[in-house]
Design a protein around this nucleic acid. Structure first.
Lengths: 242, 242
DNA sequence: TGACAATAGTGGCGATTAGCCAATAATACA
DNA sequence: TGTATTATTGGCTAATCGCCACTATTGTCA
């Protein structure tokens, strides 16, 4: 096949005739629990990387999945039972070495969900655990999942800086203090209370949903909020020229 | 295969044994020319979609490409001759219908390069053309490339709002006026001169590289700039908490 | 050589926003 | 009732933004 004939190659292409990469989907599922950012990991029980920990993932089911987002959603639901959270692509990684068996490609997703214990949901075959993000480096991670986790974490930080992503890790309704804590944990930085509140409230992304009980137990009750309709993917940083 | 045995499936997986998606890479290559944002399109000369226009792209070469970024770069170089520009992933799309022949996945990249005529570079087999972005809807586009182009365009708009992406479509050195024009075209909006200059200069992303000739011919000469070292992927929007 | 056209770059100022931190408000509980 | 604890607001200074007019430097052409 000459270098310049990709199009004719394409036209005669039958995947069974060629050596083709294997393709899978992996998901970094994040939540907030006990004041920590945690990610869901599963323990592999087969080779390669038996007994290593991995992000949940798997292959496309060509019959059941209408597209790769459906593949990711199917995996998410089978591991967590949750079906309506934020789920979005982070990046796609593909090279000859990441899987010892073959040239391999994976599309990494990230999901944000309010905390729920794993025991109720996980499939029986693998052990699944919410791992505090700071402790993931103490696990033996399969494949290049250490790197994938890093990519997801970085995306989380940067996107949090100018979107309302963090509201997705909270049970609704939530207080502004809870939301600020979520921002701080996902961004890995401290925020000034007044500035935060001004900014979020002026952005008009929340709707007040009644006076609320203090969530932990102590102190003055807070006003509770939910995301305003359609606000969930809005920017709230003033970008210039606007 | 039971629903809960992906891991063992993975371990025994041999791509030749299964019906697997086909995987390719496509690139939206943008440039600025004659005051317009343009994208490089190639005309297909094979079925399916013979005589339709498509984004440059193709399959992974498992022998030559060390990873999928290398695949994208190889395609970019073969179409433009340029090897050092901004090249980054936009998204990955995969579903049963985008290619009439098979369940198909593509990773979309975008590249930004200073203008160069296509004639010197393109491979002989396909006709390649710089198409003004506003005129792409007058072409018959192959596959889902209309949608891919839309994705790339949107990414361009949103990323331009808080990074220095636009410097990559300019020949170096460039003036602040040229840079502002680039911003305006990529973002599809108007910017205020003083604010723009304040912002860019305060962000400390450019280094002055001498007094310069007026690039077109008329008017007072401008100071010329190049990107400061390592500035090329920096944010320059003040994000809160900073 | 002296207007004029054209583009580059600056000055200035009112309005808005951010950062800071302390004061006040509402609740639980001893 | 007093204390601890958390929520919410007030108020001030400094920085930034949007706006637009003014000055600066060049080429051109009568």
């Amino acid at each position: 096949m000459s270098k310049s004939s990709e199009q004719s190659f394409l036209d005669s292409y039958n995947p069974k005739d060629f050596d083709t990469p294997i393709y899978s989907v992996d998901i970094a599922i994040f939540t907030l629990h006990e004041g920590q950012l945690k990610v869901l990991m599963v323990e592999r029980n087969e080779y390669p990387y038996k007994d290593y920990w991995a992000l949940p993932g798997g292959f496309v089911d060509l019959k059941k999945d209408s597209d790769i987002n459906a593949t990711a959603r199917r995996k998410l639901v089978s591991k967590t039972g949750v079906n309506a959270p934020l789920l979005e692509q982070v990046t796609t990684v593909g090279n000859a070495k990441r899987d010892p068996r073959h040239w391999s490609i994976t599309t990494l997703y990230m999901a944000l969900i309010p905390y729920a214990p794993t025991s109720a949901f996980i499939e029986a075959v693998n052990e699944a655990r919410w791992v505090p993000i700071d402790e993931t480096d103490q696990l033996k991670l399969a494949f290049d999942h250490k790197e994938l986790l890093y990519f997801a974490r970085e995306r989380l930080k940067s996107k949090t800086a100018y979107t309302v992503l963090p509201m997705h890790v909270l049970k609704r309704p939530f207080s502004l203090t809870q939301l600020q804590k979520a921002f701080e944990l996902l961004m890995d930085t401290q925020l000034e209370k007044k500035s935060f509140r001004r900014r979020i409230l002026n952005a008009d992304l929340l709707k007040e949903v009644g006076e609320g009980v203090p969530e932990g137990g102590k102190g003055r009750p807070a006003t509770l909020y939910e995301p305003a309709d359609g606000s969930e993917n809005h920017l709230f940083v003033r970008v210039f020229g606007d």
